[in-house]
Design a protein around this nucleic acid. Structure first.
Lengths: 131, 131
DNA sequence: AGTTATTACGTAGAACGTAACGATA
DNA sequence: TATCGTTACGTTCTACGTAATAACT
């Protein structure tokens, strides 16, 4: 069998994202390596809405996957980011810390994409533009 | 068995990443939304090595998926990032532009993770630390 | 009962690796 | 022919959504 990788070593309701990269066992120093831009967008949405349901509608997905995004982040970081209150989700200090960086990262991503596209136009790009 | 084969509706050697998000058809304004941290790491590795094979070994994966990472980025951005030369891969101006931002983003991610972990320790975190 | 987030479960899809291919010198 | 990147193909694993559950007011 071709693609074989993770022997899996479940010890809890663990979550996997990618193919459980080569040697990054879980606590080496995998700084959010398994996290995608989407996860950060999810986090910011929940942080801003304080509500998984609302954030989910805003992101055009359902609650469960969004909830899993948050749980995945918390698991990856090894610490909770929200306090679960009856009204919804309230940022913990850890979450506040992440929020700032997450926004920064997402903004950087935007800038990166824009910059590359501009560079492409400037140098006579390739792929077919709008129309 | 759950596994499916995917009949696919190819019109080209297209590539999909997530579930092809709700409405983001392909050119709305999805600024790298489909791109993960891993993709950026792959890009940086190839850019630094100038060689898919070497970069792949460095990342502990094989060439094909790494090559696909690059093609995915190029497709997402709508422009090539490398020039394919006999020796390997040479950064185009667009690639140089992205490289700077990619490094910045990856660094930001590192800082974010570290900051959150520190905040967790400072406030008496939860999840089981090293030992 | 009416909220909320989470877990269970099944299926579609994304991503790996092996192998085959294509292009260039 | 040798070396590089890419495409083909089959399998594993991730991630969605629906439905059921748990906790709290």
């Amino acid at each position: 069998m071709p693609g074989k990788v993770a022997p899996a070593l479940p010890e809890r309701p663990m979550l996997f994202w990618h193919h459980a990269g080569a040697c990054t066992a879980r606590s080496s120093r995998a700084s959010l390596a398994r996290v995608s831009i989407t996860h950060l967008q999810s986090f910011v949405a929940v942080a801003e809405e304080g509500h998984v349901g609302r954030a989910a509608r805003r992101l055009h997905i359902t609650q469960p996957p969004l909830s899993r995004h948050i749980l995945a982040l918390e698991d990856e970081l090894g610490t909770p980011l929200f306090e679960r209150v009856p009204k919804g989700m309230r940022l913990l200090p850890t979450g506040e810390a992440l929020l700032q960086h997450a926004r920064r990262i997402l903004e950087e991503v935007e800038v990166a994409a824009r910059t590359v596209r501009e560079a492409a136009q400037g140098s006579g790009a390739s792929k077919p533009p709008p129309t």
